[in-house]
Design a protein around this nucleic acid. Structure first.
Lengths: 271, 271
DNA sequence: GCCGCTTTGTGCCTGCGTTCACAAATGAAC
DNA sequence: GTTCATTTGTGAACGCAGGCACAAAGCGGC
């Protein structure tokens, strides 16, 4: 291998497609499914695996498909669906192929079938009880989000440390004390914990959630959480998002300044 | 450069480190800077292009470094910093190398220098005025976030369609009407728009923000926005995040069921 | 001043995700 | 039944990003 990588045609042409914003996933540890491969132990299995990035997109497809179903559509082509979801159609087909072969060549996909398969794959056929910790501005908003967007994520527990809040119902669920996280989560079989506390409290809260049997954590606090191997963490960081945008503003401004202040044009014009 | 790199292979080892949750970025279009290599107007831009994923991590490093600086640290090693940020030390060094060479071999990095360089690169030396559209639960929370986490992102405008809200100050800024987005944004030189409206309104709001000169959009509404080439969009989608977590719960449950019901309990529990 | 220790900066390799392009499959037309 | 138009499913290529391991570069001790 190696050796001269001859030029393949194209040189690509840089599509510059504006990636419209699939939230994307982590660096894709490629989450695997079952396993089967009779291997021995914990060493990650081969088996079929769905890249995390694809999982994120599946969720988007699901939303688009649900909307289409409501409008009475019964079938869609990959072209159609990929346009609505803002991705390339080949990527979409590959993503769907992770679910199995549910399309009909020459025709497209049946909307209902696809919805069902995606829901099954994403585990949306079960309920996932959610706890929100930290009933400040954000936590309040999350608790009121109304059973959480879409189906299947009922908020079953709220926690805060403020004595004035304890017992007060928010969005129909009374607030419990931070100290009771472990017990309450275990009792109510919480599977997803949402951390909306100040950064200083986040790690402690996280530890308690884990102790209470929570398997997945959605973290809004700007800290890097330490968790045991078997717990899944996703992070939503407002400051980071803004700073990334800031970077793009700056980049663009620099580019403009370099390439010709004002529309005057003037020189340089590199590249 | 140079000769014979013997076999440093090692070739494997697969650490399988649990990526703890850098929010990560999109599929990294690797934003590039112009160039202007020579002609050092000042000490500016390195011309190099920084992968978007690296930009996201730089923001995390910045936070960690700020915390360290507050505690009086003056230097850090890549090992130290990478631990706190939850990444591999080699990756960290590579990320920092995009900024230029600001470390001292055998010693480490000067905290203050690093903070300064990251801030400069991320464009945090300028102010980025923010507008929040949709003052519901979430928008309210965002508006109250107190000038937004960290420095440099003052909320300068709020918008909603509810007549009862117009004129009411939230977090110190009075709410304007949706119809005035274009004008107000232009007047106040808003550079970042945050969309926290119901999905149905999001595209219209987005169009108005763009018309008002907004260059970057942070979208909390669960829709794929269509924007012109020059506008940058980042999406935060709660439903998607939850569904990804749901997927992991399901995956784990399946794996467990398949691989052998751990610790006694033989029921398979096929849903 | 030399040596050895520490830590950075980076070339190289590997693997993953995206994309292209095409064969296979299907339905419709005749 | 055969042919044609469509659209899926996927093998292969490509490029980026992550990670390892090492050379280069300072610092401190002797």
């Amino acid at each position: 291998m190696v050796a001269q990588r001859g030029r393949h045609n194209g040189a690509a042409a840089h599509k510059r497609t504006r990636s419209p914003g699939v939230p994307d996933a982590d660096n894709a540890p490629t989450a695997e499914l079952p396993a089967v491969a009779e291997n021995g132990s914990d060493q990650q299995v081969r088996a079929r695996s769905i890249p995390e990035a694809a999982v994120a997109r599946l969720a988007v497809y699901l939303r688009v498909l649900s909307a289409m179903a409501e409008q009475g559509a019964t079938t869609v082509s990959s072209e159609e669906l990929s346009n609505s979801a803002g991705v390339n159609s080949a990527k979409l087909r590959k993503d769907l192929s992770y679910l199995g072969s549910y399309g009909t060549r020459g025709v497209g996909y049946e909307v209902q079938v696809l919805v069902g398969q995606i829901e099954r794959t994403l585990g949306l056929t079960r309920q996932h009880r959610v706890a929100v910790v930290g009933i400040g501005n954000l936590g309040h908003a999350l608790a009121n989000y109304g059973g959480f967007p879409g189906r299947g994520f009922p908020v079953e527990a709220l926690f805060d440390i403020d004595p004035d809040l304890i017992g007060v119902p928010v969005g129909g669920v009374p607030v419990s004390h931070l100290d009771d996280i472990r017990q309450v989560c275990a009792e109510r079989q919480i599977s997803i914990g949402v951390i909306a506390t100040p950064p200083a409290a986040a790690q402690t809260v996280c530890d308690r959630l884990v102790a209470g049997g929570v398997q997945c954590i959605l973290n809004f606090a700007p800290v890097v959480l330490q968790v045991p191997e078997h717990v899944e963490v996703r992070k939503v960081d407002l400051a980071v998002e803004l700073q990334i945008l800031s970077f793009h503003v700056a980049r663009r401004a620099d580019a403009e300044a370099a390439e010709g202040p004002v529309s005057g044009n003037g020189a340089v014009m590199r590249s």
